[in-house]
Write a protein that binds this DNA or RNA. Structure first.
Length: 274
DNA sequence: CAGCATACCTGACCGC
DNA sequence: TGCGGTCAGGTATGCT
């Protein structure tokens, strides 16, 4: 499901619904979701503990407890839904059920089973590769044109592929990178080392504008993205090229083309993007 | 190390 | 109706 705006939306929703709740019981129906721990260990560690807050690092959701953090990555289709009572019971694609002391609950669903959960000590997680290797956040002020330019200079692959590399820049995914490159009038297939410093500045500016706006609208609902069961994203209406194959380009009216770059669906206007 | 292919999974959709 | 192929918001791993 999620790129940075969708994950941010989920985190905001979770802070409204489950912050300060104490876990009574955790159930894992798909145990392979646990990457660096076991069902027995995570239950022993987190049951009876309070979720102090939920934060985000790039596309990772961080459930913060007193001494530990549980880190969830939704990958393509993961969803955390809150239910105010116990009437909803786990179903076919429920992988995790967290029941709180007040008999409310949180469930994790993931049809494709790509999502992951890690358990770390609170004071160690920022230093593990998973988190430490991430590049600057696409919406942070620390991301400068010079910084991006220097990184792109070292790569000969398609600029789109490099922008999707989370160790270069964290938070862009396939939808928004397509939108950003369209807005910048840059062909996704251009070799990264041929992107000028002015174009780097343009990529940064447009990434920040697009991601911020997507956050305001609660993300983009593709198929089933929802931050909660009754809350769908609203950014789809602003997509200019993604999902717009054969529709007229919003700038010039030429038909939007779909192609593949490094195996990912890529939407462009061949007239506007150079 | 760079760059590319493949693996991880399931379901929806399309053409025959 | 069924079958086979393709595609989907992501990332880790392994090959050349």
């Amino acid at each position: 499901m999620p790129e940075l705006p969708e994950v941010e939306t989920v985190v905001r929703t979770l802070n409204k619904t489950i912050k300060n709740k104490v876990i009574k019981e955790m159930n894992f129906f798909y145990k392979k979701i646990l990457q660096n721990t076991t069902e027995q260990t995570i239950k022993r560690t987190l049951e009876n503990q309070k979720i102090e807050k939920i934060s985000r690092k790039s596309k990772f959701i961080i459930f913060e407890f007193n001494e530990y953090v549980m880190i969830s990555h939704l990958r393509m289709e993961g969803k955390w839904f809150y239910y105010p009572n116990l009437e909803t019971i786990p179903s076919k694609h429920t992988e995790v059920q967290i029941i709180f002391e007040d008999n409310t609950q949180l469930m994790y669903f993931d049809t494709r089973k790509f999502g992951t959960i890690h358990l770390f000590k609170q004071d160690e997680y920022e230093h593990v590769d998973l988190i430490a290797k991430l590049g600057p956040e696409a919406i942070s002020k620390n991301w400068t044109a010079k910084n991006l330019y220097d990184k792109l200079q070292k790569k000969k692959t398609a600029v789109k592929t490099v922008l999707l590399d989370q160790t270069i820049i964290a938070g862009l995914g396939n939808i928004y990178v397509n939108e950003v490159l369209f807005e910048c009038k840059i062909l996704p297939t251009r070799p990264a080392n041929e992107i000028s410093i002015e174009e780097c500045q343009n990529i940064i500016n447009n990434s920040q504008i697009i991601l911020q706006k997507a956050i305001e609208y609660g993300g983009t609902t593709v198929k089933s993205f929802q931050s909660s069961e009754d809350n769908k994203g609203g950014y789809q209406q602003f997509l200019k090229v993604h999902f717009n194959e054969k529709k007229p380009c919003k700038n010039c009216g030429n038909s939007v083309t779909k192609m593949f770059v490094n195996g990912r669906g890529t939407y462009i206007c061949v007239v506007c993007q150079k």
